[in-house]
Amino acid sequence: MKEVTTQDQKAHENASLSRRKFLNYAGAIAGAGILIASCKKEDDPKLVEEGAIDLGSNDTGLLNYAYLLQQLEAAFYIEVVKNPYSGMTDTEKGFFVAMRDHEIVHREFLKNYLGTSAIPPSIENDWSSIDFSSKNSVLAKAKFFEETVVAGLSGICKLLISEENIQVVSKMAVVDARHSAIVNNFVYPNTFAEKTDGNGMDVPQDPQSSLDITRQFFKKSISGANVPKY
């Protein structure tokens, strides 16, 4: 992973600004804003609840949140394939197996990419809200997870600083969007892009509100207190 410290952020902003010469006055202000914000966070890390998993700060915190999301999706599809709902067709199984494998790639890639900064692997899930024997329950959750992950990764992408990190997260987000489209179609035909807005865009979600709706699927407490905010 490209480590991003406050110093790196400063260097990165400055380098990009001077290189591209498209910012003058306004850019300097914007750059300074980012710098001040990040210094403040660095100097004053928020306390994390005892026993909670701390996602961390800066790009690391954002990538750890992406890793958490991919852990969730991979674990979900592994369970769906292992305990198929009654009446799962071979075609349906083929889709779930493929999506499972993509999510395993996303999860394991992020684990290796984050290296020693990664949160623990295989954080135990709470599946109490899912009935894996019911097609409706599984599809409803698949739809919810894919929509949440697409919006979550896009939200992360907006906040990331490092070029490499933005690139890898965006590459995964578009494939999760393909999943989301198709799962939507399984739930109800032709709903592949039902939530695009008036600009023909998906709507991203900031990591804080995203975490608020995903933490219920983990048995351990997860802290995003130091993850960058909108």
Partner: peptide
């Protein structure tokens, strides 16, 4: 280097991926 446009392009990218998935379907 521009968060807002970058986010716009990201949100159009995933919308296009949805279209792509459906056409392939």
């Amino acid at each position: 280097t521009n968060k807002a446009f970058r986010s716009d392009a990201m949100n159009m990218a995933t919308a296009n991926a949805r279209h792509a998935a459906h056409v392939r379907f």
